[in-house]
């Protein structure tokens, strides 16, 4: 996995929101990279900045929001330098994104088929007939009967709509797919099926995935590596299995503890109390390599086992 080319390289990304007299540093010096074909999970809770990172990569943040980085490179191309037509052609073709609750943002007055075809006619100047055929192919790809092209979004269930959205995202075979909480609004039974879908597509087409969620257990099942964010900074980054078996940072531990085991003896899980949190959260230092491949932000009282 490490000998593959680096697809996305981010160094010291900072995003600052501005409003009137106040500023909020939502992302504060985040660095990571994604290799070709790799699935990177970005974990953290609301307000930690993970969605902001995704929006920054997609260049969806407008001034006065300020994005700075030592490097924000996609295949050696500087993303921050792209503008206008080049930016538009790069979006969706090279990097595509599935937003949070995207299934609820499908246009309610257009059929599914029309919306899928839109992707092709807009980005590839395809004719309508060809676009329709490709749309049918896309639906088959996500296990939906092509007859549903004529359906309106409200006629589909939540899970199906999410699959339509995923289909739209992979329509142009992007090299990187960003998914922001793709299963949060879905029932637990459906979540698993969506995750399986994503996994299948990823294996089939070999694109990289930046998977953003607060649900650690889902992430461990899908990701190769996982990065944990808190308050705009990364606190830990390691292969998925390592994070699961040996989390080093107290916050990662707290996230893992939130999912009690479904088998084995019942053990009392320690909660992350406010004092402990306050001890390390006011100033989070840069990541250091604790063991090869396992990076942690050191905490005041040393590492937490």
């Amino acid at each position: 996995m490490s000998n593959l080319n680096t697809l996305l390289d981010i160094k010291n990304l900072c995003v600052t929101y501005r409003g009137g007299a106040r500023e909020l540093r939502a992302v504060d010096g985040v660095s990571f990279s994604i290799a070709e074909g790799e699935v990177l999970g970005l974990a953290g809770e609301s307000g930690c900045g993970k969605s902001t990172v995704a929006n920054a990569i997609m260049r969806l943040l407008k001034p006065p929001t300020e994005i700075t980085a030592d490097a924000l490179h996609f295949e050696q191309r500087d993303l921050l330098a792209l503008e206008g037509r080049k930016l538009r052609s790069f979006r969706w073709r090279e990097i595509a994104m599935v937003f949070q609750s995207a299934m609820n943002s499908l246009n309610p007055v257009l059929t599914v088929g029309e919306q899928l075809a839109d992707v092709f006619t807009t980005h590839e100047r395809m004719g309508r007939r060809e676009a329709r055929d490709r749309s049918a192919d896309l639906l088959r790809l996500v296990d939906i009967d092509p007859g549903r092209l004529k359906a309106y979004p409200h006629q589909l269930s939540g899970g199906m709509r999410q699959r339509v959205v995923i289909a739209m995202a992979v329509a142009l075979r992007p090299k990187l797919l960003i998914m922001d909480e793709p299963t949060t609004a879905l029932d637990v039974v459906v979540q698993q099926e969506i995750m399986a879908q994503i996994k299948g597509l990823q294996r089939q087409f070999g694109f990289s995935v930046l998977f953003i969620s607060h649900d650690m257990s889902l992430m461990v099942e899908l990701s190769d590596r996982i990065g944990v964010m808190y308050a705009g900074r990364l606190v830990e980054m390691a292969p998925a299995r390592t994070i699961f078996t040996r989390p080093l940072h107290p916050y990662t531990n707290a996230l893992m503890n939130a999912f009690p085991p479904l088998s084995g003896p019942r053990v009392e899980l320690t909660a992350l109390d406010d004092e402990t949190r306050a001890a390390w959260s006011s100033h989070i230092p840069d990541l250091t390599e604790a063991t090869p491949g396992h990076w942690v932000a050191p905490t005041p009282e040393g590492s937490h086992a």
Binding site: T16, A21, E23, R25, Y230, A231
Partner: peptide, 15 residues
Amino acid sequence: TAAVTTVSQTAAGSP
């Protein structure tokens, strides 16, 4: 002189 608030002051679970 605008005050920059870092997210840690408003992050999850903080009092």
